[in-house]
């Protein structure tokens, strides 16, 4: 496959940045998208040019690092995947592919395709945890009975990997799917009840403080989420905050 890549290049957080065109030949349809970028980067290194900076870690769809907006969609044209799970067979020979970093005021670009997603960490730190005694008197986890439905639904919410695709694809740069998932995973379990009210209040306050936008229920986040987190989690977060505020 021969491809034309239009990639966002930005030296640092203060640089204006621009789209730069690259040609890549001999791309195998079996390559992952990141492997294709590896090939391009090796070519750039061989030419003594600056390789393209992009985030990646596990390359098996669970770290949520590969924050790329490909041809106008978070993580590219396929659904329920991250970029490392996107393969070149999803494109055609001769295609032009746009590759951009996540765009949101709360996710500033650090370099090229790498964005600073520490806003998610600070939201998590604001309440995305439970306080347990680890002094040696820890209760057996199975000592607390949990219904199968609650356990399954909480687990569904907990599969959120915090990749930020929801923010990237949202026209308002809203983080409500992420925060909704984190609130839900504890709100559904008995261990999360004690701090439930403070959790949702603090996490929503931090989300607003970070400058994320408001959800207008377009549903784009749900479609692009690689882990299939549903809008039900946003509805649950809304209910939890109303309950905590009344």
């Amino acid at each position: 496959m021969k491809l034309t890549l239009k990639i966002w290049r930005q030296k640092n957080a203060n640089d204006k940045g621009k789209i730069v065109d690259y040609k890549v030949d001999d791309v195998s349809p079996d390559m992952s998208f990141l492997e294709m970028l590896d090939v391009l980067n090796q070519d750039l290194i061989d030419k003594n040019e600056e390789p393209i900076a992009f985030d990646h870690d596990c390359r098996e769809g669970i770290c949520g690092m590969c924050s790329m907006y490909i041809n106008g969609r978070a993580h590219g044209p396929d659904t329920s995947i991250t970029v490392c799970q996107l393969h070149m067979r999803s494109f055609k020979d001769g295609d032009t592919i746009y590759i951009e970093p996540w765009r949101a005021a709360a996710f500033p670009v650090i370099k090229d395709l790498i964005v600073d997603r520490s806003a998610f960490d600070r939201i998590q730190q604001a309440g995305g945890f439970i306080s347990v005694n680890t002094s040696g008197n820890t209760q057996d986890a199975n000592g607390t009975l949990i219904s199968k439905h609650a356990a399954d639904t909480a687990m569904d919410a907990a599969t959120c990997i915090g990749c930020g695709a929801c923010v990237a694809t949202c026209k308002n740069s809203s983080a409500m799917l992420f925060v909704g998932a984190k609130v839900s995973q504890y709100a559904l379990l008995p261990q999360g009840q004690i701090e439930a009210a403070d959790r949702v209040r603090n996490m929503v306050a931090q989300m607003d403080l970070e400058g994320f936008g408001n959800c207008t229920n377009t549903g784009a986040c749900e479609v692009e989420c690689p882990k299939g987190i549903t809008l039900e989690n946003i509805a649950r977060m809304n209910r939890e905050l109303m309950k905590a505020s009344i």
Binding site: R73, Y98, S174
Partner: peptide
């Protein structure tokens, strides 16, 4: 809400395919 949401956006995408995941009406209320 529209004004605040616009402030939350970063630089606009060079290529953005909103129709792939949401209805035109939901994006243009």
């Amino acid at each position: 809400l529209e004004f605040r949401n616009k402030k939350s956006n970063g630089i606009a995408y060079v290529k953005n395919n909103g129709a792939a995941n949401s209805s035109w009406m939901s994006r243009n209320m």
